[in-house]
Simulated scan of single mutants.
Amino acid sequence: MSADIRNMLAADWAAVERIQAGGTAGGNATFADAPPMEDFSASRIPALRIAATDERGRVQGWAAATATSSREVYRGAVEHYVCVGPEAAGRGVGMSMLRELAERAYLRILDDPNLFLPRDPAQPGPP
């Protein structure tokens, strides 16, 4: 199965909820239901929210990442989530999204080369 991967859109939300609910019900996803779209969007890194669509533009899966922690020691670390609908399971859609998510995260590092580096102890700031 070939999937197009693009930025997640607000119009994708019904499919995102459906796919997550199916994964949760089947025991293959998180322990929680999908949060309201506003909470989901506010807690995920905008550049790291993607959707995989089929040839008709139907969402087959989605992936997103959030900052792991606000603690300095975790600066630049992300927690990611990849969820694939049953119609696309086992067809490489999840792996394609994971690769795209990694590529987008890498490009963020190019924008900010210090994103994943520890803070210089000589610089002022919290211990």
Rank of each mutant, 00 (worst) to 15 (best):
P36C: 05
G92K: 03
V84F: 06
A122E: 13
C83H: 02
C83L: 02
S70C: 11
A122S: 15
A34M: 11
R99K: 14
G23C: 11
L101H: 06
R44H: 14
A42K: 14
A89F: 07
V82A: 06
P46M: 10
D120H: 11
S96F: 01
P124N: 11
D39E: 11
P46F: 13
M95S: 14
R56D: 15
T24S: 10
A63Q: 00
Q123R: 13
P35G: 09
A65Y: 03
D120S: 11
G94W: 01
D112Q: 13
Y106W: 05
R58Y: 06
E38D: 13
V84M: 04
T66K: 12
V82I: 08
A29F: 12
R75E: 05
Y81R: 09
T66V: 05
A64N: 10
R56N: 13
P36H: 10
P124R: 08
P113F: 09
L117E: 10
E72Q: 15
R119W: 11
H80D: 10
Q60E: 06
L101F: 07
V93W: 01
A77D: 08
E100C: 03
I109K: 14
I50L: 14
A32P: 04
S69C: 07
P35R: 10
R56S: 13
G76L: 02
F116G: 13
Q123E: 11
Y106Q: 04
V82C: 08
S70G: 14
P86K: 13
I109H: 14
R104N: 05
R104H: 11
A42I: 01
T66M: 11
D39T: 05
T53I: 07
P86S: 14
P46W: 12
G90E: 05
S96A: 14
T66F: 06
T66S: 15
D54H: 13
V78D: 04
N28F: 13
A122R: 14
G85Q: 03
G27R: 05
R58G: 07
V78T: 05
V93L: 02
A65M: 08
W62D: 01
E103H: 10
D33Q: 11
E87D: 14
T30P: 08
M95C: 09
S69I: 01
E100F: 03
R71E: 07
G57W: 06
L115A: 15
A77L: 06
W62H: 08
R49F: 01
R44M: 13
A77S: 15
V93G: 01
H80V: 03
E55G: 15
A122Q: 15
V78P: 04
T30F: 15
S70E: 14
A29D: 07
F116M: 15
A64E: 05
M37R: 12
L117K: 12
D120I: 02
G61Q: 00
G23R: 04
N114L: 06
V73F: 15
G26T: 01
R119N: 09
R58S: 07
V78R: 07
L48T: 00
I45A: 15
P124V: 00
E100V: 00
L48R: 04
V82K: 03
R104L: 02
A25L: 07
P36I: 00
